[in-house]
Every structure is written in C-alpha cells, then in structure tokens.
Design a protein around this nucleic acid. Structure first.
Length: 620
RNA sequence: GCCACCUUAGCUCAGUUGGUAGAGCAGCGGUUUUGUAAACCGCAGGUCGUCGGUUCGAGCCCGACAGGUGGCUCCA
C-alpha cells in the first residue's frame, strides 16, 4: 500500500472486509441456495456473517466455501449500489425469502429513524444520523444482492488476503430466545504478509495462554473428580496468591481498611433481603441442612458485611467504615461459561465495602480510584485497560433496586470522580449492578477477550433494604451509603492476567521460585556448599531450590529456563575454592551484559532486597 | 444453557481402507561425575474419557453422557 495514508488504508480495510463478508455470503448462497442471512459486519481482524442454513456448518465446509469465494473474486464482479424506498425494500426481502432482513426492515420502518440502537444501522442501507428513513441502499455483486450501507470496494477482485477462521452459534440479534444462526468468521488483511503475521501473532498468543502456562509452570490444576470450574492451586501457584494477598493487606493497612471475616454460607433469607435471590436464583448453590433450613453458598459478601455494620449502633463520627476481606465466593455458572481461570464456580475476591455518609462519597471513591491506579501502574498493567462507567438501562427499570433519585445522584457523583481522574470512562447503559452504578476496570487476556478486574460501585439501595442507619449530628437516624469495591476483582482472573501479561516470567517478588542452586557434580564439598547456601537464602526469605541431581549442567540450566526461574547459581570446584558466585539472571531481569561475581553475602543480600520491592513499597 | 469442534501413557503427540496400541519428554533402575538450554543403556507406564450400539472383530463407525476448546447468551 505504497503512498497511502493510514486513514485511507483504514477505509480500504473496512470496505474490503465488508466486501469479503458479502463475497462469503454470495459463496454460501451458491452452495446452499436456501441460506437466510442475518448481519455481516466488520470486526477487528476481519469480518463475520450470521447465516441460517437450517443445518449446521462445520470447519470441514470451510475449504468448499473458500474455494467458491476465490471463484467469485476471480470473476471480479463489480459492486453496484442502488437505493429503494423502504416499502419496496420490504417487498424485496419478502420475495427473496430473507426473513431476518425483513424483520430488520420492518423494525426500521416502525422506528422511523436510525435512533434505535439495536437496529444494526451499519447493516442497513441507512444513514447513521437521526434523520427520517425514506430510502435504504443495496449492494449487488453478480446475482447476489444485499441490504447494506456500504461502502464496498469497486469489485470482488479488489479484496485483500483472507482466511475463514471459525464457525460458532450466535443468537439472532443477540437474544437468547431467538433462533441460533451460524456465525462464520473470517480474518482479512490488505496483504498476504499481514494475514500471515496476524496468524503468527495468534499462535504466539496461544503460547502465553494461562491454561497452558499454568500446566507447564505447575501453578494450578483442575480435577474431574472435584468438578469443573473449581481450580486448585499447587504450592507454586499458592505462592503467587499469598504474595498478592500480602500486598493487598499492606495497602489495606495504609488506608485504614479493616479486615473482617465471614462464614461461606448463609440462610437464603439473607439474599432475599438483599435482592440477589430474585435476580440470581439460577446461580445460587443451595445447601440443605438436616434441620429444615435452606442455606446458600455465598455468591457475594456484601449482605454479610451489612450484618457486621448492623451489629451495633453507629454514629456519624464512626464513618467511614471500610470492611475488606479476601474470601472465596461461589456461583453455579452455566457449564458453557466456565473456562480456565477466567470464569470459575468458586473464586477468591478481594472484596470490600465502605459504609459512609453522602458527603464522604467523593473522598472515598476518589481514594479507591487512586489505589487502583497505583496498583496497576506498578504492575505495568495501567494503560492496558479501559474503564466502563456502567449505568442503568433506562428502558428496563425493573432490573434494579432502589430510588430513581438515588440512582441519579449516584451516577452524577461517579461521573465526577471519573472525570477528575481522567479515566476516559465509556458510559455503558445497562451495565450497572442491581443496586447502583459502577466504574469497572476492564482488561484483555492473551487472546484479546475482555475481563473485568477492579471495580468501584455506589449503592444507596442495599443499606436501606437492610435497614442500616447511623445517627447524624442532630440526632436523626440516617441510612449510610455503601461503596462496593475490589482492587483486583477475583484472584483467579487476576492471576490469569498476570500469567499472560508476564508470559510466566513473574517479577522477583511474585516468582514461585526465586533462586535455584545447581551443582556441577555430586561431591561432598559441592553438596555441602549448596546446602549452606540454601540455608542462608531461606533465612533471608528467599524461595530457593537445590538441584543436586545426577544430570549435566546444561540439562539443569534448561530446566530452570523452562520454569522461568529468575536467578540460578551453578556450584562447582571454582565456587567452592573462591567462595564467589556468578549468578545467571533471567534475561528480562538482567541489566548487565556480562556475568558478575559476588560473595555469597553480597549476592544473597541484594537478592533479598530486590525480592522485597513488591508493588506496595514503591507505590503506596 | 445454545451451536461447532476436540478427548490415545503424567505431558506433547503418532496410529494406514475397522484386524486388538507407538514415540519423545517426565518417572524409576543402572552406567557416567558432568561448567551454563536436553549424556548413555534399560525398565515400567494405557479397559484408547465413560456407557451403550453396529460388526466375526471397534482407538477408528453410530448414539448418549462426562470433561475440554472456540463462539453466542449471562456475569451481583
């Protein structure tokens, strides 16, 4: 693409990908004349088209479809644009036996404008403003005609490199009750080279998949006997969890947060009061007592925390009260949702609830945003995220609890905090929690899938439902406000993100094993020095292992490389004689070109120091 | 939950048109005593995810279930 501006290139990519969606649809139509089409938009790396064939497609059909697409590309059919009044378009959709297009057109006619967001404006031949719809546009290539706003490339021969990637079920218009269509995905780029690079990038991403690394680095495991969605951490994985817990506890202390502790189940009545039982009944694990009571495993911790608040009278002078804990919660997720550490049935959260006065909301929410920002900055993750300002769906008020006026106030306050900290938050309607608006901090996994970690949620509703109060300056009883918050969200997701972010090469303070001592041979002197070194390292809280196996040094080094151990020292005659060590440092940690020698004390002292510089010390 | 695909040793994978299972690594034993990414020899390890069906005969064909993967939907 010589002499083409990035903007023009972007436009071409979009038009070309969209054209490929049409070409794919044409090919499918030739192969299966009965095919009914849904929508076929452009996505980040290519395009897809939703198709109802009355039968399932499988990857085995890809070769056939791709071959047909190449035929159409060789035919170099021009893309012709034309317009029809909406009523004629409806006649067209009826005659062409395209019920999905017909539904879109009918909805469009009824709505009258493009303002209704779920009308897939891009798919329809309509302008993207609020103007009255009169005409809709079509594009035709060969004998295939599709409702479409365009633009397209001139002809089918003008598209770039593509590859059909996958097929998946997708509900028509994203609604679970609707028929399921086949969504055919394709990757497309301007050149073969870019396509190859993209495919290579996907292969690379798979290598840092936390499920693969979790197995290779011996961090966590699943068992069919224990059950799906129930991860277990090995000793190595648990080290990481514990280090993070320690860091969080350190932060908590510095910000006057108080650790609390609650049991993992409660009577269902607790969640009837909170409102969770109604909205999330399907996801509750129920536990039957022998004595006529029904319990549920806690799916959240806020109701328990309200009962700690309620355990004694509170004064305005007591507030804010910041309860936090690191605890496991349980949700009976649908089998199809579970996967790796991204969504599990039991997961540990760093949950916290601040009870405060309305005039303290700003300060409390601001503090949390600051803590979150610092925490992620220090792990190098800040900037790899976006913030969702999640508010109510105005069309579905029944999905929420609490007064509308409280909601408005809460939304305004959070918006202000978000503004002040330049969070660049995207307003997401319908993404709020049942009890209030929230700021969600979203991150991407190795394969580009989004996941929510940190969150700050305002809640005027739940304290009222539990009848929580404090006594204000004039002796009046007032409901407190609750702020639900998490810094890392769930440990499972957070660990997933860390594994993939570092590709398993954890910073020293998180590394399950910080130092490995390798012996050159099994003589007594060397083994003795190894044992001594290990003892000294352990005294300094360095996580250390000795490899005194009867194997070559090369082999032992290779093992430490594969396990991504940060520091390795080899002990042989040389070291025994000189008493000096020449550490081998994992590449990403080493700033020096050449290996340097240290006395045992120097080396261990430096290492112990570096290992302490965890996220809290530098930041908070 | 829905659609598609996958499941062979602890791990990564072979396994011809259906004729009764193989490799490398890891493990264990021995030889070797090793200097910065894989020493050598041997041994052991599998009701081919489970159950049922077709067949003279099933790792291979069919079905159900379980588990996993990619999406969709959901996510307090």
């Amino acid at each position: 693409m010589k002499g083409v501006t990035p903007m023009e290139n972007e436009k071409y990519l979009h038009a070309m990908r969209h054209s490929l969606a049409h070409i794919m649809a044409s090919a499918v139509k030739r192969l299966w004349p009965e095919a009914k089409f849904g929508v076929g938009p452009v996505i980040d790396d290519g395009f897809y088209y939703d198709i109802d064939l009355g039968q399932s497609l499988s990857p085995e059909d890809f070769a056939k479809i791709e071959a047909e697409m190449r035929t159409i590309i060789t035919e170099d059919q021009p893309f012709e644009r034309f317009e029809k009044p909406i009523d004629e378009a409806i006649v067209w959709a009826t005659e062409a036996k395209q019920p999905y297009k017909l539904e879109l057109l009918n909805d469009l006619k009824r709505a009258g404008t493009t303002s209704a967001k779920d009308l897939d404006a891009e798919e329809l031949g309509i302008p993207s403003d609020e103007s009255k719809v009169e005409n809709v546009s079509f594009y035709r290539n060969g004998d295939f005609t599709d409702l479409c706003r365009g633009p397209h490339v001139e002809s089918t021969g003008k598209v770039g490199a593509f590859k059909l990637m996958k097929v998946a079920g997708a509900y028509w218009r994203g609604k679970e009750g609707n028929p399921q269509m086949q969504r055919l995905y394709g990757a497309a780029f301007a050149t073969e080279k870019e396509l190859r690079q993209h495919l290579a990038m996907l292969e690379e991403a798979k290598k840092r998949d936390h499920r693969k690394l979790g197995q290779e680095l011996d961090l966590f495991t699943f068992s069919d006997l224990v059950g799906p969605g129930l991860p277990m951490y090995t000793p190595r994985g648990t080290v990481i969890i514990e280090e993070i817990k320690n860091a969080l506890r350190q932060i908590s202390k510095e910000f006057d947060m108080q650790l609390v502790s609650i049991p993992h189940l409660a009577k269902i009545d607790l969640y009837k009061t909170s409102g969770h039982a109604d909205k999330f009944s399907e996801e509750l694990f129920t536990v039957k007592s022998h004595y006529d009571q029904e319990f549920v495993l806690k799916p959240v911790n806020c109701p328990h925390h309200t009962q700690i608040y309620a355990s004694r009278p509170r004064s305005y002078r007591d507030l804010p009260l910041r309860y936090i804990e690191q605890t496991m919660q349980y949700r009976d997720e649908k089998p199809g949702q579970i996967g790796g550490l991204q969504r599990t049935r039991g997961f540990t959260v760093d949950d916290g609830h601040t009870f405060c006065r309305v005039d303290q909301i700003d300060q409390e929410a601001s503090m949390l945003v600051e803590v979150i920002q610092q925490f992620y900055e220090n792990l190098g993750l800040w900037g790899k995220h976006w913030v969702s300002f999640s508010v109510r769906d105005p069309k579905n008020p029944a999905a929420y609890i609490g007064d509308p006026s409280d909601w408005e106030r809460a939304e305004a306050m959070l918006a202000e905090v978000s503004e002040r900290y330049h969070l660049n938050a995207k307003r997401m309607e319908g993404e709020a929690a049942i009890y209030g608006p929230k700021l969600d901090f979203m991150f991407q996994d190795a394969l580009g899938r989004e996941t929510q970690l940190a969150t700050v949620q305002l809640d005027f509703a739940m304290p009222k439902r539990f009848g929580l109060t404090y006594t204000d300056e004039s002796g009046e009883s007032q409901p407190p406000v609750m702020i639900h918050r998490a810094i890392l969200g769930s440990f499972e997701r957070f660990i997933m993100l860390l594994i993939e972010h570092f590709a398993g090469k954890f910073p020293l303070w998180l590394a399950p094993e910080q130092l490995r001592i390798i012996t050159v041979n099994q003589t007594e002197e060397i083994a003795g020095m190894a044992a001594q070194l290990k003892t000294k390292a352990k005294e300094l809280d360095i996580r250390v292992l000795v490899d005194n196996d009867n194997e070559s040094v090369g082999k032992k080094i290779r093992t430490t490389e594969l396990m991504k151990v940060p520091y390795v020292v080899v002990l042989g005659e040389k070291e025994v004689e000189s008493g000096k060590l020449t550490p081998r440092i994992r590449k990403d940690l080493s700033t020096r070109e050449e290996a340097q020698s240290y006395t045992v004390e120097e080396f261990l002292g430096t290492l112990a120091n570096e290992a302490k510089s965890r996220v809290t010390k530098t930041s908070l």
